[in-house]
Design a protein around this nucleic acid. Structure first.
Length: 719
DNA sequence: AATCGTCTGCTTTTT
DNA sequence: GCAGACGATT
């Protein structure tokens, strides 16, 4: 059926026009009867079994959502404003395809985070026969690419057991290259180099690798060293997968045959390569269902291309475009505030969020004297609401632009004994013990993985120093063999000190022995891992290197948790060690997300996709939101979207605060309210300040105390 | 190999 | 003002 034709669809003998937008009438209602048989469009219908029928599911959706679900073939863009039931639509659409009798393994749903992919899978399993639903591919862009590459990367001259470098490993390599490449007087920030290289790699335009500049030389060297290490970074996963599909028609056709229906979540966050990957996979059929919201595009700085969504129709000609604007999350006051902010952006697909949940409480905009008052006010109010109204602490979230801002709130929570959780910051996988642990597993899984082997070699320190390692590396490059083979070479060892030679022998023997054990078919991987870590002195080192008992326990628990994950993983037959490591390298971990206990402290970026009944959006000051740097980079529109994302997280109550002064970079500085705040609609907001709010809530004697505090602060500022 | 002192730089970070 | 990195010490 041609795209966008709003084709006629049969429902239990009745006729349903996919394009209609009005409420279901009586005729339709009977056609959509909850237990009715379902037959629509595309494939041979399946008999619905114990799951809610498709008809009933459709009945729960609003008219536009229904159209999104019922759209047949050809490209469709679903512009899903914040809180408009996007995930629901996407999962229901998959269910609908399944009901149509589409082969589950021909359906591919792509997301950006493992969390999103896993949540979608969970949801799908409750909606359709799990045995079938499980066969639907739901994964991240990166894990999709790994799947593609594990099968065909040899065509591009890599070995199939390539290693995936994470951010840290990438950085390490770049740093080493810079020190080796740069002349005495040359300087290059590894951070800068990394992001430039990543930009160059991602933006398909090949910036004529100019090896005359230091950056160019580092870039060229980085690429060639990755290749010799048989390693790929996160960018390469996309680049190589796209190259494979572009350059090898048989691969492309094979994939196009396999995946007949593509669904992409958070489309506004896709970059050029991700778009290209999708067009390559979609092929002529062009069955692409993209879901996203240009107003929530906040990852431009990471290469996301808003134009992918703004110009969707030019990438997928004939695309149908639907707008979801009915919001099921927030009150009208919140939504009007959000609408008012976002309409200041020019390049966007205009949307007006609305809800039928009533006006709700007005949005408070509070002026605070300084950042300390801000955090104490917010935390005390949360405390107060929790005590007097029994509002669960999980209902509250404090949203801020930069991680540094979390600190004051953290301290304040501690002072008040409010449980809290911080989202973001250093990720689990960046923890040293986790990386060391994974290095061991990777070394055992693939001893020719030099980088991880060398990392394992250093934990614990074995008396094999820089010079030995460097010598081994040189030799391994020269002889074109893995470092482990150099270590095992008696001639090489005879050139080391006795101590070093012994250590090398012990280490390589250990790795080799466990390599064999791990590859036995019925191996108990958990048990083996514990033996490996005991024998190698890993656990001992882990405890030894901690200052406090508590820290040691924490770190050991992290590692033991991961071993538990590995056990579960193999028990559930999800795959072998190599597959487990792939998943983990891409951050996919079966987290039993112990339902968040406490107040949530979170950055605006990390808050996207979440919702909270009570939201405090703090530090909304010129220079912070919008951030100073964004003005130089000309990304004010993205800052505005960031604010929009923050506002639309709130379900019932939203408080926006800014300070007259705050401590930044160590010294007290005056602040202006964010220029965005001028755009707020007066009829839905209430402007107030710290003192007014205090006077309203506090007993008089407390007010005096508060005032005394304030004076104390002022004198502190002057001193 | 560990430790101490000095220097720097300071947004966000799905993979 | 503080954390993290790096180089010079022992």
């Amino acid at each position: 059926m041609p795209a966008g034709s709003g084709g006629v669809v049969e429902w239990a003998g009745g006729t349903y026009f996919g394009r209609r937008t009005q409420e279901p009438d009586a005729e339709m209602q009977s056609a959509l009867a909850p237990d009715g048989e379902v037959r629509c469009g595309i494939g041979p219908a399946l008999e619905p079994r114990r799951f809610t029928s498709m008809g009933a599911r459709l009945f729960d959706l609003n008219p536009v959502q229904q159209q999104a679900v019922l759209h047949d073939e050809g490209p469709i863009l679903i512009l899903a404003g914040a809180g408009t039931g996007k995930t629901r639509v996407i999962t229901t659409r998959i269910v609908r395809l399944l009901y149509d009798g589409i082969d589950p393994s021909a359906i591919l749903g792509v997301t950006f985070t493992n969390k999103a992919a896993n949540e979608m899978r969970e949801r799908l399993l409750t909606m359709f026969d799990p045995e079938q639903a499980r066969k639907v591919t739901l994964c991240t862009f990166h894990s999709l690419c790994v799947r593609i590459l594990r099968q065909g990367i040899d065509l591009l001259g890599y070995k199939k057991n390539f290693t995936i470098f994470d951010e840290g490993e990438t950085m390490g390599l770049i740093k080493r290259i810079i020190t080796r490449t740069a002349a005495q007087d040359e300087k290059l920030e590894p951070n800068v180099a990394r992001s430039m290289i990543s930009k160059a790699k991602n933006s398909s335009w090949n910036p004529q690798v100019d090896t005359k500049t230091l950056l160019g030389a580092v870039y060229a060297r980085y690429e060639s060293e990755l290749k010799t290490l048989n390693a790929v970074d996160f960018d390469d996963l996309l680049i190589l997968a796209v190259r494979l599909l572009r350059e090898f028609p048989e691969k492309r056709e094979q994939m196009q045959e396999r995946y007949q229906h593509l669904l992409v979540d958070e489309f506004q966050d896709t970059n050029l390569l991700q778009l290209e990957l999708m067009t390559l996979l979609a092929g002529k059929r062009s069955n692409v269902c993209a879901v996203g919201d240009d107003d929530q595009s906040i990852y431009g700085w990471r290469g996301a291309e808003v134009t992918n969504i703004l110009e969707f129709e030019s990438h997928f000609p004939g695309a149908r475009v639907l707008k979801l604007e009915q919001n099921y999350r927030s009150t009208d006051a919140v939504l009007q505030t959000a609408n008012a902010i976002i309409k200041g952006n020019v390049r966007r697909r205009a949307k007006q969020l609305w809800s039928d949940q009533g006006k709700g409480e007005r949005v408070r905009v509070v002026e605070m004297p300084d950042d300390r008052k801000e955090s104490s006010f917010v935390c005390e109010e949360i405390h107060h609401l929790h005590q007097t109204k029994q509002t669960p602490l999980e209902d509250f979230a404090v949203l801020f632009r930069t991680n540094a801002q979390s600190r004051g709130f953290e301290e304040e929570c501690r002072r008040l004994k409010l449980p809290y959780r911080i989202i973001g910051g250093i990720s689990f996988f960046e923890r040293r013990e986790v990386k060391d642990f994974l290095a061991y597993l990777q070394a055992v899984a693939n001893p020719s993985d030099d980088i991880h082997l060398l990392r394992a070699l250093q934990v614990p320190a074995r008396g094999v120093g820089q010079t030995t390692v460097q010598r081994a590396l040189n030799e391994s490059i020269q002889r074109e063999v893995g470092v482990i083979e150099v270590f095992e070479d008696l001639a090489f060892r005879s050139n080391c000190t006795k101590r070093t030679a012994g250590a090398l022998e012990m280490f390589t023997d250990c790795i080799r022995r466990f390599e064999g054990l791990f590859h036995q078919p019925m191996a108990d991987l958990g048990k083996l891992t514990r033996e490996l870590l005991d024998e190698s002195g890993f656990f001992e080192e882990l405890r030894r290197s901690c200052k406090t008992e508590e820290e040691a326990d924490n770190r050991e628990r992290n590692v033991r948790d991961l071993i538990g994950d590995l056990e579960k993983y193999t028990l559930k037959k999800k795959g072998d060690l190599a597959k487990f490591l792939d998943d983990i390298s891409l951050g996919d971990r079966d987290t039993d997300d112990t339902q968040g206990n406490g107040v949530t402290l979170i950055t605006l970026h990390a808050a996207k996709g979440l919702e909270f009944p009570q939201v405090y959006l703090v530090g909304v000051e010129e220079g912070i939101l919008p951030h100073d740097r964004s003005k130089m980079e000309g990304s004010l529109d993205e800052e505005r979207r960031l604010l929009y994302v923050g506002i639309t997280r709130a379900m019932k109550m939203l408080t926006i605060s800014y300070c007259q002064g705050r401590v930044r970079y160590g010294s007290a500085m005056p602040c202006q309210p964010s220029s965005f705040l001028k755009e707020l609609p007066d009829d839905h907001i209430e402007r107030t300040d710290f003192h007014e709010i205090r006077n309203r809530q506090m007993a008089p004697e407390d007010v005096d105390a508060g005032f005394a505090n304030f004076k104390a602060f002022l004198s502190g500022l002057e001193g």
